[in-house]
Design a binder for these strands. Structure first.
Lengths: 221, 221
DNA sequence: GCTATGAATTATGAATACAAAATACAAACT
DNA sequence: AGTTTGTATTTTGTATTCATAATTCATAGC
């Protein structure tokens, strides 16, 4: 496979690259909550100077993923129960909104694509492949977000769920909960097909509330 | 009045101070949307080097107030009609949520304080002092946010309204609109006193929608 | 006269250097 | 022994320097 030589040359500032990498490392749990990040060490690891690294840290701090304390460095934000309790009603409100907007704007083509993803997700569920299930699950939720046609909303959702997502890997969904989640996804598709915004909003809220419970259980252990 | 000599000595990094100052300048309209910010110039103005200034710029860019383009500098984000149409449903959802939460948590003391503020605001209204009116108006909305007891929610609201607030100074409220806004504030107090979350949520949404119209009118001129 | 090319200038990106604060550690004192 | 105080080391904050890309401007070619 040959690359497109006419395509624009990709160049991005180091601070962008660093912010993306650090964000990924935090969200995926490679950097533990509460862990202290020493600038010098990270500089060595990434092979960059402190300047762009510090710029990236400022970005992640305003996103809430890092905590900066003047003159005493930088730690990965901890995820407390209180944080979850704060975040979830907000996510609920935003999800409800994106559900309603998605129903207004989604195209038949998008809906077809989503059904396809859903079917694949069911396969993963039946195979008990939690990790793969999560991956497709996320794609579906992303599609709803896209269908809402509101980039600002999408960005806020993403930023919020980024903080919470870390708890996901702790979450050991019970078989019952997993089955319920799949059923909720079935209902979502129905509501979307019917363009029933209110119903979708309600389902998304329930879905989220259940997820919160799972995550909280995992966190309290 | 003597100062508290035992109080912790206030010291903050330059990038924090700079971020606050720039944020203020943007939100208050001292820096026009679309305006290009030259690093060197700002450094001269504030008397600092480029390093902390650039860190502050990264923060404001993630907040959406600045737009960074690799290798070609930094401009104040423009506020388009599309941005408003995106922001307002989100603000509506968040306000509704904070209204409900506020009704659950507000204390009688807070309510009393809010009534007092409200009365002062009415005075400003009757005197036709728009600027002062706005100031108290903001304090009241801030009190509702605080009463919701959800710092994450408050921060998101603040960040969103920060982007929109710039349009406020363009907004030349009509006498009718102003009267309506005051009436809406009366209803808010009633709903809060009755701890009627649903009603407060509905009022806040209406209030916001009306505000959107005013701002959009101003922006299209 | 207008466009296109290239040098000079300026601005941005990143690394290094320096300053100041915090931490770690050792010695002196109770 | 435990606490306190002073010093060394490390880390963070800021300024400066260097590298590279973008812009401006002048000149050459059509």
């Amino acid at each position: 496979m040959s690359i497109d030589v006419a395509a624009p040359i990709q160049r991005r500032p180091l601070h962008n690259e660093l912010a993306d990498r650090l964000r990924h490392m935090i969200v995926e749990g490679e950097l533990a909550p509460g862990e202290k990040l020493a600038e010098k060490e990270l500089c060595g690891q990434f092979g960059v100077s402190r300047t762009p690294l510090r710029e990236a840290m400022k970005v992640l701090a305003t996103e809430g993923l890092l905590q900066l304390t003047p003159n005493r460095g930088c730690t990965v934000s901890k995820l407390t129960l209180a944080d979850l309790d704060e975040a979830f009603p907000i996510m609920g409100a935003l999800e409800a909104l994106s559900g309603e907007l998605a129903c207004q704007h989604i195209t038949d083509a998008e809906l077809a694509r989503m059904r396809e993803l859903h079917a694949r997700m069911i396969t993963k569920y039946e195979a008990g492949a939690l990790r793969d299930y999560f991956k497709i699950n996320e794609q579906i939720h992303q599609m709803i977000l896209d269908a809402a046609r509101n980039p600002t909303l999408a960005q806020m959702q993403l930023s919020l769920s980024g903080r919470v997502r870390r708890a996901r890997y702790l979450a050991n969904m019970s078989p019952a909960r997993w089955a319920a989640a799949v059923a909720e996804h079935e209902s979502m598709l129905e509501a979307l097909s019917a363009r029933d915004g209110k119903r979708l909003a309600a389902i998304l809220k329930t879905h989220l509330t259940n997820k919160l419970e799972t995550v909280k259980d995992a966190l309290t252990e």
